[in-house]
Design a protein around this nucleic acid. Sequence first.
DNA 1: CGAGGTGTTGAAAGTGCTCAAATGGCGTGG
DNA 2: CCACGCCATTTGAGCACTTTCAACACCTCG
Lengths: 247, 247
Amino acid sequence: MHSNHIFLKSSPLFSALSDEKIESLLEQANIIKCTKGRVLFLSDEPATHFYFLKFGWIKLFRETLDGAESIVDVLNDGHIFGESAMFSEDLYTYGAEAVEPSEVISLPLSMIKNELDTNLYFAKSFIRFLSDSRDNKEHEIEHRSLQTAPQRIGCFLLRLTDQKKKGPLTIHLPYDKTLVAKRLGMQPETFSRALTKLREETGIRIKGSTVEMDSITQLQEFTCSACSSGFPCRDLAKKGTCVGEHH
Amino acid sequence: MHSNHIFLKSSPLFSALSDEKIESLLEQANIIKCTKGRVLFLSDEPATHFYFLKFGWIKLFRETLDGAESIVDVLNDGHIFGESAMFSEDLYTYGAEAVEPSEVISLPLSMIKNELDTNLYFAKSFIRFLSDSRDNKEHEIEHRSLQTAPQRIGCFLLRLTDQKKKGPLTIHLPYDKTLVAKRLGMQPETFSRALTKLREETGIRIKGSTVEMDSITQLQEFTCSACSSGFPCRDLAKKGTCVGEHH
DNA sequence: CGAGGTGTTGAAAGTGCTCAAATGGCGTGG
DNA sequence: CCACGCCATTTGAGCACTTTCAACACCTCG
């Protein structure tokens, strides 16, 4: 259990908890190893637990009456999910599925409720988390209406990297292109074509799921003019839904 | 000051505050009457106050490097805005402008900070507020990618009304069509054509900024099939960014 | 009455979507 | 180790929706 303790403690959301509290939490926790495709829960299911993502990638999704799937988010290390059920009569507001091999820790929803009733520090971390996450959604909306498909891909790539990094760079797409496409609100076919266009415009090189470039600025110039966050874009990944950060 | 007290108290966000607290708040408050077009603040300006909207409509917006405007939200009675500055080094993260005659109460940002440091009830209301508001953004994203322009207008109209209401109904667009268009992420021309199409599809009647229909179900059937919230759509306005509700 | 803002309409172009088919990689079973 | 089949990705062609640019109608206010 020791490593799990460290994982939780490293998240801004849980750093306000005492070591004893975390220990007792972990006693009620389940560690779940997920293979690709594992569904953790579905929308509208009764919820007793929320999840902390140790590593991997988790897709959150909803479905409409006429069968279309909408991607709510795709999360990586350090994020939590399923917590929103506590505001919706303990029903999950989206489904969750591992899209890469992942490991998650399930924790009782009641833990958040209890903590919010007694721990102002925790409440404040939680507020920060919600605010960041609202912020990200806001920017997502802006991107969808102001950026073209190639620009959205550029922005996605930028957010996978350290934006202050100089010089040559290699990025690895963390999950299927099809899912990246839907995450960015476009069809797989459009993604494929848009990626080609992005290559032509910025000189990035693409081999399978690997993207290389000589420097990040080419990408920024093409991408960030259509965004209100300005040029070396305020690192949304840092501020954002992201609670912890990759190691 | 009495009416202001009542206004604040009626908001779920402030109902956790004692009467004395509200009184002392109001002593530090400014009541600002806004004519159409009045700009309250701009993005990236230093922020000392946030705002409570007594009545009217306020547009929140950002601008991109290449000059495009992005509508963050358009708020009505009972909402607060500008509070997000407290998470961004006391800089407003968007601009705010009255798009209809409005009256707002400015309150010191420090009030929220102090209250969050001492008042668990307030913290919990604030959490609820942020969560609702994140939820709304999430649905907005879904709408943008899954609904057609006519459907988005339909959804917008539905959210202006009591969705449980039976029988004939008259809706009044609360602000300029041009702004409704941009609020919904489309061009004014597209809005105009999409509204015509919506009329043809659902039999609603349009005279200027007034919309009439025999019953709400026509609209729901056309609109809500492309939304994950299901049929008589979970009232996002109630759950949503909306803190208070129209009177 | 004239000016400016707001909303509508038309035509042409652009962007992304749908459907269909081809390509290519990868793991499994033989 | 190879062939097969599956699935992700790419490519092509045509289409649908939205945007853009331009012109016009309408309304309100001075």
